Amino acid sequence: MRGVDELAVEIKEVGFQCTRCGACCSEISEGSNLVIVSPGEVRQVAKAAGLPRDEVAEPYPEFLEGSEGSWYTFDWCLSREGGHCRFLDGEKCRVYAARPWICRTYPFMLEDDRLIVSECPGIGGAMTMEEGRAIARALLARQAAEVAEEEGIRRVLSTTSPPSGESVVVDSEGVWPVHG
Rank of each mutant, 00 (worst) to 15 (best):
A49C: 07
A49P: 08
A49I: 04
G50P: 12
G50A: 09
L51P: 05
L51M: 15
P52D: 08
P52F: 00
P52L: 00
P52Y: 00
P52C: 01
R53F: 13
R53P: 12
R53C: 02
R53H: 11
R53D: 09
R53E: 15
R53K: 03
R53Y: 12
D54P: 05
D54H: 12
D54I: 01
D54G: 04
D54Y: 08
E55C: 00
V56L: 00
V56G: 01
V56C: 03
A57I: 03
A57N: 04
E58I: 11
P59M: 02
Y60T: 00
Y60E: 01
Y60D: 00
P61F: 04
P61M: 06
P61L: 02
L64V: 05
E65Q: 14
E65W: 09
E65D: 15
S67D: 15
E68F: 07
E68K: 10
G69K: 00
S70D: 06
S70A: 06
S70G: 06
S70H: 02
S70I: 00
S70M: 01
W71S: 10
Y72P: 11
T73D: 03
F74Y: 15
F74G: 09
D75C: 09
D75W: 14
D75G: 15
W76L: 05
W76D: 03
W76P: 03
W76E: 01
C77I: 15
C77G: 03
C77Y: 06
C77A: 11
L78P: 11
L78T: 10
L78A: 03
L78Q: 05
L78D: 07
S79H: 06
R80C: 08
R80P: 07
E81V: 13
E81I: 12
E81A: 11
G83D: 06
G83P: 09
G83H: 11
G83N: 10
H84K: 15
H84P: 03
C85S: 04
R86T: 09
R86D: 03
F87N: 14
F87Y: 13
L88E: 05
L88H: 10
D89G: 11
D89Y: 01
D89K: 14
E91N: 12
K92Y: 09
K92D: 12
C93P: 13
C93G: 05
C93E: 08
R94N: 01
R94K: 14
R94A: 15
R94Q: 10
V95N: 02
V95G: 04
V95R: 03
V95L: 01
V95I: 12
Y96M: 06
A97F: 01
A97V: 04
A98V: 05
A98K: 09
A98F: 11
A98L: 07
R99C: 10
R99K: 14
R99H: 08
R99V: 09
P100K: 04
P100M: 04
W101N: 10
W101S: 09
I102D: 07
I102L: 09
I102G: 10
